[in-house]
């Protein structure tokens, strides 16, 4: 889905080629949940290391002094100094385990991968974002009032947190836009907008006067036919002839048949998509 159509919030990035593409920004809630996951992982890691160091201390006594020092060093670097975030955002290209889980990623706001200095800067500024009166009060306020949902650290480092688009392949689209009229020897292709019109037309079809019905049927069908003119099957060619003549009842029957086919196809396709989700 094109992000600009549905996104809660987007960031538009202009390339040197004067084309702008979009990323969907991660909202405050998503980021909070990702942080909670990271916090949980960090706690488990620290508990494990503290446990190991404590076990050695109790068995070896003061000889294990250096082990406790190492444990303190680890806890300090990972937790107090933001080492956990700095390490993972560096090696996982702007992601931490929590961010990976929520499918979000840190990015420079010019669309390039996040740089090391930016990673350090945005994570040192957790100190400010975490400040009073409660955890992440300032950071959350900054997120809410910022146009690109940035906290203080993001503002300074010039970074944004974006949602990762699902990886798709062009093959999916080729497959999806398979011919929709299979009743003829020549396959017909149609556009989504046309189908919307057709479906709407079918819903009011019975309430229309015959003259209007004829006129609209022709208007709707003609582009479909003209588009496929190049290699038109005789059967279709005769349909074109009929359809262009508003008084021909045969043509209207054919048009109606086509529309029903279209409708059926699209209902099935929507069902398939829903099932896939």
């Amino acid at each position: 889905m094109n992000p600009s159509a549905t996104a809660y919030s987007i960031i538009s990035i202009e390339t040197p080629e004067n084309i702008s593409f979009q990323y969907e920004l991660a909202g405050p809630g998503t980021r909070m949940v990702a942080y909670l996951f990271d916090f949980l992982i960090l706690m488990v890691m620290m508990a494990a290391i503290g446990g190991v160091a404590g076990w050695f201390m109790s068995n070896w006594g003061a000889d294990a002094d250096f082990l406790l020092a190492a444990a303190i060093a680890f806890v300090s670097i990972a937790f107090m100094l933001g080492g956990y975030f700095i390490l993972f955002e560096s090696i996982m290209n702007g992601q931490t385990p929590g961010k990976r889980l929520l499918r979000i990623r840190v990015l420079q706001d010019n669309g390039t991968p996040v740089e090391f200095t930016s990673i350090v800067l945005r994570n040192i500024f957790r100190i400010v974002d975490c400040m009073f009166p409660f955890q992440y009060a300032i950071g959350t306020l900054s997120l809410i009032f910022s146009k690109e949902t940035q906290r203080f650290g993001d503002h300074l480092a010039g970074t944004v947190v974006v949602k990762e688009a699902k990886t798709q392949s062009a093959k999916n689209f080729i497959y999806k836009d398979k011919p929709v009229f299979t009743g003829f020897k020549q396959d017909l292709f149609a556009e989504p907008e046309e189908f919307n019109f057709l479906m709407e037309y079918i819903s009011i079809y019975k309430d229309l006067k015959t003259a209007d019905r004829n006129r609209i049927s022709v208007k709707l069908i003609r582009p479909l036919i003209e588009r496929n003119k190049l290699n038109l099957h005789p059967e279709l060619r005769s349909l074109v002839g009929h359809a262009l003549n508003p008084d021909n009842r045969e043509a209207h029957k054919a048009a109606e048949a086509i529309m029903k086919e279209v409708l059926r196809h699209y209902r099935n396709r929507d069902k398939d998509e829903d099932n896939q989700k």
Partner: peptide
């Protein structure tokens, strides 16, 4: 369009 957007990005 969404697909191409991601590809360009």
């Amino acid at each position: 369009t969404g697909y191409l957007n991601r590809l360009v990005a």
